[in-house]
């Protein structure tokens, strides 16, 4: 049986982990490779690395970092942040990323999603959507790391991205992100109801119930979380054991 996934997310800047990972016993909690190894040992289902480096020059070294990660962990991971063309995607996949996530460039140039899916297959193209509520059951897509509103409806964009060939949606609720109040169930449900590709819920995980709520109240396939794992409030295994008790299929 295909199981639901738990995915820790790491923000990378200038090839260092930011948003403070406080793992006990890690010699260098800023080293993406060390942190990735720790999550590999916890048997996280996947990892997501989001590169938030501003400078283009420094971002070039991301490919080397991805190679280094791929040599050290034997689990799937997605890389996103600043991907703007086919050659970026090819370089990251060849360096060892299982999938790439595309956000701003996909909104600005939807054809990039179509071309990438044709070239590399839908299975490795993730459309990352940052959405913010504008009214009851209405959400707007933001780009440029959540700084720029686009006027585009998130549900419509999700449908379009899937039609273009995206193989997965990484859906972040800007309203819930960082609140620890739980995932945005209404948003996640609105998207999973209209697409037939996997959806990763993101933003808001603070308690164990938040994960089971997301899986039991929506048809999402994976839950992404950052600080709850980085600060060792819970291990990935504890979350999965809880989910198993609640009847959610997980890999343990």
């Amino acid at each position: 049986m295909l199981t639901r996934r738990i995915i820790p997310c790491l923000d990378i800047k200038d090839n260092r982990v930011v948003k403070g990972v406080k793992f006990l016993g890690l010699r260098d909690a800023g080293d993406p490779v060390e942190v990735a190894k720790a999550y590999d040992q916890q048997e996280a289902d996947e990892l997501v690395f989001l590169d938030i480096t501003a400078s283009f020059q420094k971002r070039k070294t991301l490919v080397e970092l991805v190679e280094e990660i791929a040599k050290n962990i034997f689990m799937p991971f997605t890389v996103g942040g600043g991907i703007s063309d086919i050659s970026d995607i090819r370089n990251l996949l060849n360096a060892g990323a299982e999938k790439v996530s595309i956000n701003t460039a996909a909104v600005k140039c939807p054809d990039l999603v179509a071309r990438a899916a044709r070239r590399f297959g839908s299975q490795c193209i993730v459309a990352a959507i940052d959405a913010k509520a504008t009214g009851a059951r209405q959400w707007e897509v933001y780009i440029n790391g959540g700084r720029t509103p686009t006027g585009q409806d998130a549900v419509e964009w999700a449908k379009q991205a899937a039609n273009l060939g995206a193989g997965e949606i990484l859906l972040t609720s800007m309203d819930y992100d960082g609140t620890k109040d739980g995932y945005d169930i209404a948003l996640t449900k609105a998207i999973t109801d209209v697409v037939s590709i996997p959806v990763i819920a993101s933003g808001g995980a603070g308690k164990l119930e938040h994960f089971s709520d997301a899986f039991l109240k929506t048809n999402c396939d994976a839950c992404l979380a950052a600080s709850i794992f980085h600060y060792e409030e819970y291990t990935v295994k504890q979350v999965k054991e809880y989910l198993k008790e609640k009847g959610v299929p997980v890999r343990l």
């Binding site: 049986m1 295909l2 199981t3 639901r4 996934r5 289902d45 996947e46 839908s122 299975q123 193989g167 997965e168 037939s196 590709i197 996997p198 048809n219 396939d221 994976a222 890999r251």
Partner: peptide, 14 residues
């Protein structure tokens, strides 16, 4: 893709 079967098949399976 039919009856709730999502494509791609993505994740850990037996």
């Amino acid at each position: 893709a039919a009856k709730g079967l999502k494509v791609p098949h993505m994740g850990w399976n037996q």
